[in-house]
Design a protein around this nucleic acid. Structure first.
Lengths: 139, 139, 139, 139
DNA sequence: GTGGTCTAGACCACG
DNA sequence: GTGGTCTAGACCACC
C-alpha cells in the first residue's frame, strides 16, 4: 500500500495520501490499534515534503480514523475500518461518477462509452493480475 | 451543450470549458464554419468570469479547432470535427482510466468495482435518457 | 476586531485567528455575504505569516462559516451567525471552565477564588469601559 | 492531590504537574521536609511518561520548592510553602485573567460573561463539594 | 488581486 | 524518535 502519489494530478497530494491511508485501513492492511507509518517515513517513501504528509494526517485525525499517540505516532481507531470502507466506496463511486458524467455530457453514444469502460476495466484487472486477456492493450 | 461546469471540481473550469466545446464539435452540435458563442455570452450562461472563458478559447485556438474571424467571432475550423472526435475519446478514456486506476489501488475487490461501475453507468444513462432502468437510483 | 494575537500563548495562533473571526461574525461585525479580510491583509495586520492565516481560514471554511469565492475572497455564509454565536459561548465557557477547574484543583478556598474572579471581572470591564471603579488595579 | 492531568489541553503536561505540586504544597497537602512521590510512582498514577514527570521535577527543583535528598527522593524545602502560596494565586489569577481577556475580546455582552462565569463558578463548587446548588448543571 | 498547494527548514513538546 | 506549529517563499488557478 501507499506506493504511489501522482504529483501532477489535479487532486492535491495530501488528499491522495488521505485516500491511500483510507484504502489501507479499509482493506485491512492497517489494523485497529496499529501505528501508521510516521510522517517522516512516509514523506521519504513518497518523495514529498513531511509537511504535506502531516497535513494529510491532520485531516485523517479530524475524520476520526486515526488518533495521535503522543511521542509514538498515529494509531488506527476502532471506528476506522467501518468508516474507511464506506469512505472507500464513496471516493471511488465519486470518481467513477465524475468520469461518466463527463462522458455523458460529451454526447458520445452510450454504447461507445460502455465499450470504452469495459476496455479500461479489463485493462485495470489485467494490470492488477498480470493476466493477458486484456481486450485493448494499446494506449 | 455547454450547460454544466462544476466549480468545485479539482479540474480547472477553463479545462472543463475546453472539453465541453470539444465535445460540442465532436458531436456535431457545432458545425464547421459556425460561430461559437461569444466570451461574454458564454461567461454569463456558465456563471463564470469572462477571463476564464477567454482563457479556454485561447487554448482552443491554440489547438486549431477554432479560429478568430475578425469582427465576427470564433469559428469552427474545417479540421476541427475529426480532431475533436479523437480528442473526445482520449479525454474520456483518460478520465475513466484514472478513476479505475484509483479503484485498483484501493484493493476493493474487482467484482465490487465492476458492480459499482455498472451502477454508475446505468445511472448515467438513466439521467441522460430520463429512463427508469437504473439499478441503484439512490445515493 | 481582529486586533490581537498572542504569539507566546500555548493556544496556536491559527486557532486564535479562528476564534477572533468567529467572534467577529457572532458580534455582527462581519455580516452575511460580506468578504472577510484577505489572507495577505490579515497576515500583515497581525504580523504573522500568510500561511498561518490561510490555515485558520481553511478551518473556518471546514466549519462552514465562510466560503471561498474564487478570485474574490472568503464570504460569510448565511448559517454563520447562528453557528458563531453558539460557538462563541462554548469557546468562552470552555476557557472559563478550564481556568476554574484548575482553581478548584488548587484547593484555594472557594471564597478566595470568587474574590479573585470578581477582581478580574471588574478589571476586564474596567479595561473595556475605561471606567475607574476597578477593585484591584494593581498586578 | 495530583489526580488530574488533561492530556489534550494546550497547556503542556509537565506544566500541569508543576502546578499540581505547587498547589499541593500551597494547600499544606505536602509539608516541609516531606518526600514527594517518586518520578515513576507519579508517572504511573498520572498515566504519563516518566520523562515528563522528571521534567516537571527538574523545573520544581530549579524554582527551589523541592530539593533532591540523595538516596531518599525529593523533599519539600522550608521556603516552599510561602512561595507556593503566592505562586498559586498568580497562576490562577493569570489563567482567569486570560480567559476573561478572551471573553472581552469576543464582544460578548458583559452581563452574559458575568452570567456564564457565575454558572461555571457554581458548577466548580458543586463538583468540588458534590453539593447541588449548581445553577446550570447541564452542558 | 484572491485563495490553494507545495517545498524547505526551523523550533517545540512529548516519550 | 514522534507529531505540531510557524516562518519563508515558491508556483498555480482563478477573477
Amino acid at each position: 500500500m501507499l506506493l504511489d502519489v501522482q504529483p501532477d494530478s489535479p487532486v492535491p497530494i495530501y488528499e491522495q495520501i488521505v485516500a491511500q491511508v483510507t484504502f489501507g485501513i479499509a482493506s485491512g492492511g492497517l489494523e485497529v490499534g496499529a501505528l501508521i507509518p510516521s510522517v517522516r517515513e512516509l514523506a521519504q517513501r513518497l518523495l514529498v515534503h513531511p509537511n504535506t504528509v502531516a497535513r494529510a494526517f491532520q485531516e485523517l485525525e479530524r475524520q476520526g480514523v486515526v488518533a495521535a499517540r503522543r511521542g509514538r505516532g498515529m494509531e488506527v481507531t476502532p471506528e476506522a475500518p467501518a468508516a474507511c470502507q464506506s469512505m472507500r466506496l464513496e471516493i471511488i463511486r465519486g470518481r467513477v461518477r465524475e468520469a461518466l458524467r463527463e462522458a455523458a455530457s460529451s454526447a458520445l453514444p452510450p454504447e461507445e462509452v460502455r465499450q470504452l469502460v469495459d476496455e479500461e476495466l479489463a485493462r485495470a484487472n489485467g494490470v492488477r493480475n498480470s493476466k493477458s486477456h486484456v481486450r485493448n492493450p494499446k494506449t
